[in-house]
């Protein structure tokens, strides 16, 4: 009987001691983290296009924090989904096609300036104030800031806004990933020596 008592007391004491240590550690080594919404928001592309059906990235981040699916952001695409899955410890899912497809190349809006009638409709549409201009004056997109969200295209009454791919310059050009050469020599076409030509 007494041995049982001793065991119980011992275990209880141990539990209290370890609990205290853990509690102390939790306070002492607390990791100051961003609130989860901010962390999620940081991973979203900030295109603010609303394709996720929320009025911007932050609202979507809030929705995700509240349990919304993570696969609704087409501009972010797969990489964003993976990053979110990683952050939240959930399984990555394929992009929800309902909200649109991921674009291959980043785009920016360009206003054909001589056609612009200065209606300010696009200014009102742009979620990040990337369009400059006043009423009845010509409008211009600040290309460096434009996220390519498309939102300004539709409201323009004279259709003078185009979405164009971001231009490659010496500054942003870089080598492509080398082709996976082994994969290129598929059995089917080893006979064809042209493969080698393509490779190089």
């Amino acid at each position: 009987m007494s041995s049982i008592l001793i065991a119980v007391v011992l275990l209880a004491t141990l539990a209290i001691i370890f609990g205290a240590i853990l509690g102390f550690a939790a306070v002492r080594f607390k990791v100051e983290g961003n609130p989860i919404v901010d962390q999620i928001d940081d991973l979203l592309p900030q295109t603010q296009c609303g394709q996720c059906s929320y009025p911007g990235c932050k609202p979507y981040a809030e929705a995700i924090a509240a349990g919304e699916k993570i696969n609704k952001c087409p501009p972010g695409g797969e990489s964003t989904i993976i990053a979110l899955a990683d952050l939240l410890g959930v399984e990555p899912e394929p992009l929800d096609a309902e909200h649109g497809a991921e674009k291959d190349v980043p785009m920016v809006a360009i206003i054909r300036e001589d056609e612009c009638i200065g209606c300010t409709k696009c200014i009102q549409a742009c979620p990040i104030d990337a369009i400059m201009g006043a009423a009845k004056q010509m409008h211009t997109v600040i290309t460096d800031e434009c996220t390519g969200c498309d939102l300004c295209v539709e409201p323009c009454p004279v259709d003078c806004i185009d979405m164009v791919p971001i231009e490659t310059t010496l500054q942003n050009w870089h080598w492509d990933k080398p082709k996976n050469l082994i994969e290129m020599i598929n059995i089917a076409d080893t006979a064809d020596q042209n493969v080698y030509k393509e490779v190089h």
């Binding site: 082994i182 020599i185 598929n186 059995i187 089917a188 080893t190």
Partner: peptide, 11 residues
Amino acid sequence: LKMRKRPVGFI
């Protein structure tokens, strides 16, 4: 290699 559709001779 044949089954994996890889170039047999090369590998």
